[in-house]
Design a protein around this nucleic acid. Structure first.
Length: 483
RNA sequence: GCGUCCUUAGCUCAGUUGGUUAGAGUAGUGGUUUGUGGUACCAUUGGUCGUGGGUUCGAGCCCCAUAGGACGCCCCA
């Protein structure tokens, strides 16, 4: 038997272990979000962590493809011992994929959206449309890790597939507001329409480089107007021969509209008046966008401090085609001022999602919660409840085999009432057993020894106060049920 | 793809211009207290100094290479 090589315990880069306490906190976030999702009629689904490479490749652009985790095929003939070195083998080393049947290669999922598209097309016969699902699961990216950015992380998405009604947008906005209220985070849900950006770009003659335009505009929060103008200027000059003055006016244009207004209707009205229909931009389309925004925002009385129209909100994603969201900390609130954190969520409407899998054209709209960041912010603001209720409520401790057996019997009575309880297994000195309760933050301990067995009155100790009293098991159960 | 930094005990880290046997705190174990934790005190286990090579009488420390990791750009679900 070969000796097992001892290695230093370590994790691959960009991955984390979670301690029980951390899992409890993460579950608190997940449970809060799930409760709201279900309240609005969303059903949870799951899909495999691995998908065919076919499914994943080509969906995230060149940059995304590079970050895909690929799983080496076990069909690789090179690994077979009987395989002798030949020219073919050399070719295998260089071009292994060329010798594999298409679709046999696997990869780890990169997000939850592409699996959703595959899922909807594959199961369309079994699903009720509009299909409202949520999905909370880890995804993997071979990215270079940074602070708050990992190779394995959770995504938490809710989407509605197959309905173009704006009621969906209204409800998703409600969900954002409600979830963050429940988590006691003060945030602003920013809303924009993708085509507002297109209109602005078009008005300033930036249609050729619209992608670059959105990428730059999206950085506004991070780098400020001066840098944005700086980055936009070459686009204008190179491709459209407009003087940089136009970019300055772009800044003023957006800035004025956004700042001088108190209500969404003011903002949308101003937008409407500010952008004259050009030959690239038909008036009725623009009207449609404005009314879309007004309908979504005006449907119910959102708190205007919490839900705001942000005409320069872009989001990098190219596949969004309609309303887009982003959730950010409300920097006007005192407690948030010191916290440096990007968006806590985002989403939008996208068309043709299912097309790539041969499905009929289905419009989709969805939101996502950045739970890793939400966790960090809540930790910093100390917003997690002190008692997350995920630990044992009461521990039985004992001295010898007889008292262990007796305690074990009593334990069954407590467990019969679904009270989380345990007995210290095996013989150990009492202080070690108490230590265990202490480390595990178990609030109550029941001491069972000779006296207790004789009298039937057990020693019930409150670990927080240190006080203890002699009670029958029935009296103890009553107390435990009470809190 | 570009750049900065890190790696010494399970964990967090000291370790002087290169010098004898590499330390501390913490966690663990045993005890002070054979029926009472969160505090204290005493004792004690635990290290191929990431790996490989080089310089040197001598390397945790200097040089080269390499692996792993963290962070910042780029990009971004």
């Amino acid at each position: 038997m070969a000796e097992i090589k001892k290695i230093k315990p370590s994790l691959p880069k960009g991955t984390r272990d979670f301690l029980p306490e951390e899992v409890a906190k993460r579950n608190y976030i997940f449970d809060t979000i799930k409760r709201v999702f279900r309240k609005y009629g969303f059903q949870q689904i799951d899909t495999p962590a691995i998908e065919s490479l076919e499914t994943l490749e080509g969906k995230y652009g060149d940059e995304g493809d590079k970050l895909l985790f690929k799983i080496r095929s076990n069909k690789n003939l090179l690994d077979r011992p009987e395989f002798v070195p030949t020219l073919k083998e050399r070719l295998w080393e260089v071009y292994p994929y060329n010798f594999l049947p298409a679709g046999s290669e696997k990869g780890l999922r990169y997000d939850l959206t592409v699996p959703l598209a595959r899922y909807v097309v594959q199961h369309q016969g079994d699903l009720a449309f509009p299909f409202k699902r949520f999905h909370i699961a880890p995804v993997w990216r071979g990215d270079r890790p940074q602070k708050g950015r990992y190779q394995e992380f959770y995504q938490c998405d809710a989407d509605i597939i197959g309905s173009t009604s704006l009621l969906n947008e209204v409800e998703l906005t409600q969900i954002y507001v409600e979830v963050f209220e429940r988590l006691r985070l003060k945030v602003i849900v920013e809303i924009n329409h993708r085509k507002v950006l297109e209109a602005i770009a078009s008005y300033f003659g930036l249609t050729v480089n619209f992608e670059s335009f959105t990428i730059i505009i999206d950085k506004l929060d991070k780098i400020g107007w001066d840098k944005v103008v700086e980055e936009l200027t070459p686009l204008v000059v190179e491709h459209l021969a407009l003087e940089a003055l136009s970019v300055k006016s772009l800044q003023r244009f957006v800035f004025d509209i956004y700042n001088g207004s108190n209500s969404w209707f003011d903002v949308t009205d101003k937008l409407y008046k500010a952008i004259p229909p050009s030959d690239r931009w038909r008036e009725d389309t623009w009207k449609g966008i404005i009314s879309t925004l007004q309908e979504v925002l005006g449907k119910i009385k959102f708190d205007q401090e919490k839900v705001k129209l942000n005409p320069y909100l872009a989001r990098g994603l190219s596949y969004y085609t309609g309303i887009i969201w982003e959730v950010v900390l409300d920097k006007n609130k005192e407690e948030n001022k010191a916290i440096q954190m990007g968006s806590l969520g985002g989403g939008g409407r996208y068309d043709n999602l299912t097309e790539m899998f041969g499905g009929r054209d289905m419009s989709g709209v969805g939101i996502s919660f950045g739970i890793e960041r939400i966790y960090d912010v809540m930790e910093e603001l100390k917003l997690f409840p002190a008692d997350l209720g995920e630990t044992t409520k009461v521990l039985f401790v004992h001295f010898d085999e007889a008292s262990e057996a007796y305690a074990f019997e009593q334990l069954q009575k407590v467990r019969a009432l679904d009270i989380a309880s345990e007995i210290y297994p095996g013989k150990k000195k009492l202080d070690k057993q108490m230590n265990y309760a202490n480390d595990k933050k178990i609030p109550y301990v029941i001491v069972v020894g000779g006296d207790e067995m004789a009298s039937g009155k057990l020693t019930f100790k409150d670990m927080a106060s240190g006080q203890q009293e002699k009670l029958t098991i029935e009296e103890i159960i009553e107390k435990l049920k009470g809190n």
